[in-house]
Design a binder for these strands. Sequence first.
DNA 1: GTCTATATGAAGATAGAC
DNA 2: GTCTATCTTCATATAGAC
Lengths: 218, 218
Amino acid sequence: MPPLPTLPPPSTPPNEKALAVLRAAAAVFLVHGFSAATTDMIQREARVSKATVYAHYPNKEALFIAVIEHECARMAATFRAIATAPNAISASLFELGRAYLQIVLSPIGLALFRVVAAEAPRFPDLGRSFFLAGPQNIAALVTSHIERAARAGEIDVQAVGVDAAAALFLSMLRGDSQLESLTHPDASPSAAQVDDWVRLAVTTFLLAFGKRAAKGAR
Amino acid sequence: MPPLPTLPPPSTPPNEKALAVLRAAAAVFLVHGFSAATTDMIQREARVSKATVYAHYPNKEALFIAVIEHECARMAATFRAIATAPNAISASLFELGRAYLQIVLSPIGLALFRVVAAEAPRFPDLGRSFFLAGPQNIAALVTSHIERAARAGEIDVQAVGVDAAAALFLSMLRGDSQLESLTHPDASPSAAQVDDWVRLAVTTFLLAFGKRAAKGAR
DNA sequence: GTCTATATGAAGATAGAC
DNA sequence: GTCTATCTTCATATAGAC
């Protein structure tokens, strides 16, 4: 009897310990930033010896880069999931906006932004990765949604163009909410507060680009 | 309501060396952030001995706090200068917006934002100081400008309120420009690019809140 | 690959002369 | 107040056994 083939480890089997290191590193780097984080913290958080950390990553910088790239990929996957979700076709600006803001204002979203903004001068590639995985990704989503709405005659964005309209919508969403959350780390915004922000952005967007009926009816 | 205390003047003794230390510390902290900055760098930059640094500031944290408070106070002063400038009464949204964006996107403005965002969890007071000195300050300015325009019948912001309208205008201004500058530290936006961003925000603001003639005339 | 133990350097902060 | 010299601690990274 041939031996039952043990389930072959997937192509790139991240070693169990290697994964523990990466997860621990994420936790530590996202809380303390690059410089204040120490390999000791990571080693302890991963319940692993210091040598094990260096067995999988050549140095602290490489580990940091791996962490941020990993988080960016997760963020990108989240946005792709929104894009391909069954309700995507009927997704309103409001739903899209709320999904975006919930990610941006989540503890991980804020921490990632803090770290990337702070370390972009030192790690320029990470700044670009973050921009592509997050803002760029969601902007493409919103743009296509706006394009559809424009073709359907629901809105008119000729004054600024589709891309700018999408960017402005996202800017209005992020604007104050992200700034307040970044500078007031104690207070986490409530779900109701988030909804208020989204409504405000949607209202203003439609005032600017909605068909005149919406405004004239007032 | 207790009177808003003006930011307490940073305890800067008129001492020549103390000022050199503070200026050097600003240069170092704004470039490297708190943790990566070392007192050696500051000492060297100030052309002063290490003991002199500690003669004026009890430790690295206190020096950092002094630096950030000082920069926030400078920023607040800049905005107050805009407010009281002779041309303030005739200042258009465009001029106000450009002044704001030039400060936000300046090397110091970006560096200050990076550092404050990164260190706000560790130094919550600095987050608050920054918010009051910068966004809050300029928002008050824009709000009063919008209020005047609304009373003059040039715009109608009843749909969202004056405060929200001001916040949205500033959010549209900052939005993409600040995000791109933060994540792409190599490329500094040109003056023309800045003007484009301001025009875009003003255009959209007027589309949303301008009297219908502006929109109907299109 | 994983551990314990350690080398090596640098950081924050101080002592003591002037 | 200011300097030179130094103390102490701790960080990154490695050596060598298993």
